[in-house]
Design a protein around this nucleic acid. Structure first.
Lengths: 193, 193
DNA sequence: CACAACTTTTGATCTATATCAAATAATCAT
DNA sequence: ATGATTATTTGATATAGATCAAAAGTTGTG
């Protein structure tokens, strides 16, 4: 039995991009499920197909991969953001990314088959996907620039800005690998001012 | 008078993602135009709204911006790729990016209003946009990783792979800024092996 | 609540790449 | 073609941030 109240904020999220017909609203409510993760819990393992996309209602999920046995954080997602392993989810392939919960996290999720069903039956969902993806694009470009031409300290400042609501809740080591610097360097940067 | 032969390869490109109805084919043919740029020519200036998206038929276009008076290459596009200033084009805002021609370049182009018309009237175009954007996503993620955790030499090798067909036609200085290293370092990397 | 297991900090080197400077080499316009 | 620009290479030094090592702090669990 689905709780309508629960799905309110995610529906509002869709409505930032497209108008929702009653029909689509009810289909979304049918296809979306709700799940709770405990801090530290693995949401997705590497080397398996990511069949669900998660929309965070509370908490933080992280995508990471292993390089020389160490966890490299790829990105963090907080409230009102979608998380999945992009290539894996869209192409139904295995990929290197893990997803885990940095905090106790509540999320909606939708299965890839149900999403495809929505794409096939509600063209406005295609528009939603195009527009919401577009808004992520700019962030990626900024990050690439940030990685190329700024000092460790500037990158940390930039990180604080782009993740202003959650940055203080993420452990230092994870932030360091996200920024492409060592923990020691990040610790010194934090210490200095 | 539109030359149908000219538009063949771009239509084939669309058909990699979506089936094209005769109707959509004819609309696309109507909305697409053709333009030729000479080597060195500016396609788009910074600080003005990018109203056209270019699909390259021959040659190379480059997106770059200025940092401390120096050109920083953002990306290069060769045959069968779309080029525009993403934020500017999608949000009709001014942005910092320039586009110029690295070689004599022939391209189709479409105006943003015509593209919106197509999105509004052909839902399959929304799907095309979603799918083709998705394929760029993976490249962005790889590049971010490449920037964070690899040496200058590895980055150059990665660059040669991702731009295997055009990398040797791009001047060294432009490649260096794309990789986030100095010309001197890149020159030494090239010299060594 | 105590001790084991992480996480963060601090300190001492080391190194890849930047920076500065100048010499060649390639390209372009007259 | 020929000199003027512009791009690339080569050399000498400087430095941000890595690496290695160990201490201090924090967190979670029986």
């Amino acid at each position: 039995m689905k709780n309508f109240e629960i799905t309110e904020n995610i529906l509002e999220h869709f409505e930032k991009f497209i108008p929702l017909s009653e029909n689509l609203k009810s289909e979304l409510t049918k296809k979306l499920n709700y799940i709770v993760f405990k801090k530290g819990e693995i949401v997705l393992n590497a080397n398996q197909v990511c069949t669900e996309s998660y929309f965070i209602n509370k908490g933080i999920l992280r995508t990471y991969f292993l390089k020389d046995g160490k966890e490299i954080s790829e990105y963090f997602c907080g409230i009102d953001e979608w998380v999945n392993s992009p290539k894996s989810f869209m192409q139904r392939k295995k990929d290197i990314y893990y997803i885990d919960a940095i905090e106790n996290t509540d999320a909606y999720f939708i299965n890839v088959n149900d999403l495809v069903y929505l794409f096939d039956n509600f063209p406005e969902m295609e528009r939603y996907a195009r527009l919401s993806m577009g808004s992520v694009f700019g962030h990626f470009m900024e990050r690439i620039t940030s990685m190329r031409f700024t000092s460790a300290k500037e990158r940390y400042t930039h990180f604080q800005k782009t993740y202003s609501d959650i940055y203080h809740r993420i452990p230092l080591g994870m932030v360091a690998s996200y920024l492409g610097i060592t923990q020691e360097t990040l610790s010194r940067i934090r210490a200095e001012k």
